[in-house]
């Protein structure tokens, strides 16, 4: 990845002492984090650990939330949600182009759809797509804006296991081609290990573990070396595995 090394020196996201609280309950308690440009990061945590709060803060979606701290994020940020969030009253291509203007937008939209394997479905209604297809359309919608940072909030959580494996490969491939920084929020330890080059564990409102996963891609779920990472991450999450 030599051509990208100089890019990696410039941080895409920087959080300093980021604090967020709801009704007096502190959810994020002074988070410090730097994500270099082009890095693929996964964020793990229990439900309620504040991982979605962190993502929403970076996305700028946390209006009316009390908090403090410094936050730097790139200008072009795209978000993929757990649900595909396609507007049911727009066909697929207009959904992908939502908020996009200018000449050539339609061409880019078609190209993005082709990239996620949905060429020819431009005129379909969202209700006609399967769960996996809808999520791929959502990926196309975030890619077409050429984001510097891609935020994904448990994007595969609602998909069946087989579709999820295919989506993992697709996401990794898209990342390789476009090289945005990625912050993938998930509760699935295996998903984090297979996809990300760096895995963070959020614990009691702070980054409890910052782990670099240094294994070549594509990774297999059966890779025995990955199980060491797995054990370490599960330990950080407070889960003890029965080894019998």
């Amino acid at each position: 990845m030599a051509p990208h090394t100089e890019q990696l020196t410039r941080p895409a996201v920087r959080l300093q002492g980021l604090t967020r609280s709801f009704d007096g309950r502190t959810v994020l308690d002074g988070v410090d984090l730097e994500i270099p440009a082009g890095q693929f990061v996964a964020l793990l945590g229990h439900s309620g650990s504040g991982k979605s709060t962190l993502l929403r803060a970076v996305a700028g979606l946390d209006h009316e939330v009390t908090g403090s701290g410094l936050l730097t994020a790139p200008e072009r940020v795209s978000v993929v949600f757990q649900d595909s969030r396609l507007l049911p009253w727009r066909r697929i291509l207009p959904n992908v182009l939502l908020g996009l203007d200018g000449r050539g937008a339609e061409e880019r939209g078609r190209a993005a759809l082709a990239e996620v394997g949905l060429a020819g479905r431009e005129r379909a209604w969202p209700s006609e797509l399967s769960g996996g297809e809808a999520q791929r359309a959502a990926l196309a919608r975030s890619l077409v804006r050429e984001p510097e940072l891609l935020l994904a909030d448990e994007p595969f959580g609602a998909l069946d296991a087989l579709t999820r494996i295919r989506m993992h490969a697709l996401l990794r491939e898209l990342w390789k081609r476009h090289r945005p920084s990625v912050l993938l929020v998930t509760h699935d330890v295996d998903e984090a290990i297979v996809l990300a080059d760096r895995v963070l564990v959020l614990d009691h409102g702070r980054i409890g573990l910052d782990l670099t996963v240094d294994r070549p891609h594509p990774r297999s779920y059966r890779d025995p070396l990955l199980s060491e990472y797995r054990t370490e991450l599960l330990g950080a999450l407070g889960v003890v595995e029965d080894t019998d």
């Binding site: 700028g60 979606l61 940020v77 795209s78 507007l87 939502l98 908020g99 804006r145």
Partner: peptide
């Protein structure tokens, strides 16, 4: 509300 959020994210 999820669509409102989407519109914000897409910069509408």
């Amino acid at each position: 509300h999820r669509f409102v959020e989407l519109a914000e994210v897409q910069g509408l």
